[in-house]
Amino acid sequence: MNNKTWIAILSLLALALGLLVGCGKKEGAESQSAATPAATQPAAAPATPIDPATVASVTGTVKLDGAAPKAAKIDMSQDPACKGANTAETIIADGGNLANVFVYVKEGLGDRTFDVPKDAVTIDQQGCKYHPHVLGVMTGQNIQIKNDDPTTHNIHPTPAANREWNESQPPQAAPIEKSFAREEVMLPVKCNQHPWMKMYINVVKSPFYAVTGPDGKYEIKGLPPGDYTLAFVQEKLGEQTQKVTLAAKDSKTVDAAFKLQ
């Protein structure tokens, strides 16, 4: 080979390496901006006032029609540090009451804006599982991610509307703070080191949401009077909606039931 060929090959190699380094730097920079706590972000539009004397509430229970499937067993043997409960949380229904259903006001709030809570919500990695399994936050609200396990995890949300990121967190490391800028329901989060670790973050623009507890119950308070569409979303069973009309100081019950597909 002559000198020109060698120079061409070496230039291509240098270009490839340069591109890689560039990608790495860009990734780092974007990651930093994604981690920026909401408090330091530009101020959002002022919240639309709500008259506290007229606010209403919705409560209810979400049920599962039919017998609950047996929870799948998780094999945690690939990491001796993982000693959590070894059953999956895909469908948890105790006595027909369905837990981990995200309930939120999908329609009816119009152009109202709401203050983002200053307090962060916490995701805890404990027993090589995420706690909670289903989480609701407002857009821009801080999420604090802790690792209470004696092993390294990586936190890897795979959103459709927000920016994807992937960070590792060793034992006793400082909490990671993140927020999501856009609305997205059932945003999956996983750990590539422990493939059974999965959870869902629900990012909405209003504070009117709840996640059903082990008894299948939820409560959404502080709603201004109006006509609303409530959505009930379960990670495996999908979404249902129901209409509800709330008068001033109303307190209504809206139940839902999912059928096994």
């Binding site: 790495g24 990586n154 890897h156 992937n166 960070e167 590792s168 996983k190 590539n192 080191q193 493939p195």
Partner: peptide
């Protein structure tokens, strides 16, 4: 197959 591609987040 083990969905471990991003278990190490840097390269």
């Amino acid at each position: 197959s083990n969905d471990a591609g991003l278990s190490i987040p840097d390269w």
